[in-house]
Amino acid sequence: MNTYAATIKVTEYPPHLKHKVIFETFKKLNPSESMLLINDHDPKPLHFQFESMYAGDYHWEYVEQGPEVFQVKIDKL
């Protein structure tokens, strides 16, 4: 079983706070720690944003790919 330093249920946040909470949580991770995102849709736009901001500093892995629930493990490298 995986252990995550943080779990974010994205649907619990208002739209204007979602990415802010996600990126603030990622910044607080220590290298080799992971966070889990749980969402009701595929967070592809977020993945593109991670790639533009943190290329080479993270690893993105789908744990569950819908259709109703998407879970993404994001590791800080």
Rank of each mutant, 00 (worst) to 15 (best):
M1V: 09
M1K: 11
N2W: 07
N2A: 07
T3R: 09
Y4I: 05
Y4E: 09
A5G: 10
T7R: 09
K9D: 15
K9A: 12
V10Y: 05
T11Q: 11
E12A: 13
E12S: 14
E12V: 04
Y13G: 06
Y13V: 06
Y13E: 12
Y13D: 07
H16G: 05
L17V: 04
L17D: 12
K18C: 09
H19W: 04
H19L: 08
K20R: 13
K20T: 12
V21F: 01
I22D: 02
I22A: 00
F23M: 04
F23P: 00
E24C: 04
E24P: 04
F26M: 00
K27E: 15
K27H: 12
N30R: 15
P31H: 14
P31V: 12
E33S: 02
E33M: 03
M35R: 03
M35Y: 02
L36Q: 08
L36P: 03
L37C: 06
N39G: 06
D40I: 12
D42L: 10
P43M: 05
P43T: 05
P43I: 06
P43S: 04
K44E: 14
K44C: 04
P45M: 06
P45L: 05
L46C: 02
L46G: 03
L46A: 01
H47S: 10
H47W: 07
Q49H: 07
F50D: 05
E51W: 02
Y54A: 11
Y54P: 03
A55R: 13
A55G: 08
A55W: 06
A55E: 15
A55I: 08
D57H: 11
Y58G: 00
H59Q: 13
H59R: 13
H59D: 11
H59P: 00
Y62H: 14
Y62L: 12
E64Q: 10
E64C: 02
Q65K: 14
Q65E: 14
P67Y: 09
P67I: 12
V69Y: 11
F70I: 10
F70G: 07
Q71K: 15
Q71E: 15
V72G: 01
V72S: 04
V72W: 01
K73D: 11
I74M: 02
D75A: 02
L77R: 09
L77M: 06
L77I: 08
